[in-house]
Amino acid sequence: MAVSTLGQPKRAKSLVNRFKPGDWVFTTLAGAAAAIVALVIVGLFWQLFAQSREAIGHAGIGFVTSTTWDPSHETFGVLAFVAGTVITSVFALVFATIIAVLVALFLVEIAPQRVARPVSYLVELLAAIPSVVYGLWGIFVMGVFIRDHFGPVVTSTLGWIPVFDGTPLITGLFSACIILTIMILPTVMAVSRDVIAAVPSSQREGILALGATRWEAIRIAVLPYARSGVMGAAILGLARAVGETLAVTLVIGNSVKLPENIFSPAYTMASVIANQFPEATGLHRSALLEVALLLLVITFFINVVARLLVWRVTKGQRAMVQE
């Protein structure tokens, strides 16, 4: 056997701590990146607050309790916009989540691979369509359909209920609700699908072995296991719905009055900022920045509530689950 000519192989000798440049650079860079994120949030809050101070001093609490928004008379009340944002977002949240979970269950539990893949891909494609395209489709296709077909049927059958008794137009609250539902559907569906697919097969087999049918297995084992993840998916969708601006601005009708029924033209907080900011000066501008501040606070609040909800649901079912 040949004798090695390389001499002693390299071994560790000293135990003394040495300077490790790679570690130092990595720690510093990662820390800086984290700090920047925090600074952006704090800076955003501070700037919005500083620039809306004039409006806060002017309108006081009336800003959020009044429904009169009249920049020419320097009256600023945003309740109608808040209502528009809340109604459209909650509607979209509820309907998109229901549809998304059904689609996700179909893709994961029922459809064979050769169907599931293309359908999945198509739904995700919805997320790639630009907002303005949704808005234009909403006006020219969906809006017209609502005005000519869907609206009249609703008002003639359900018109005795006040919220359904209106004049269907191309644009309005209902159009915005539908557009938002379609727009957040891909996000909620994709996350729900992944969450449901991640339910261990041992859970399905466990309930099936007790004599469950397929639907019973979904209801008793799959959905409860996935519920915290599905809630997370819904919250992601809600955040998108609250912030969505362009498509909603195109279809909601842009009326500063509090909506009276589902077909009324309305406004959302994001839309009013987008529409009026370019021409706004002075107090008007400051008031719009206060709307932005309020929007940021609401989004922040939604996220905190969502985290609490998810935390409450997952409490006790964390790491102990055996995959």
Partner: peptide
Amino acid sequence: PARVRQRVGMVFQKPNPFPTM
């Protein structure tokens, strides 16, 4: 098959209790 499984039960390799129950 669901009724077959009511009469022929099964215990699996890894314990799989339902975590939400």
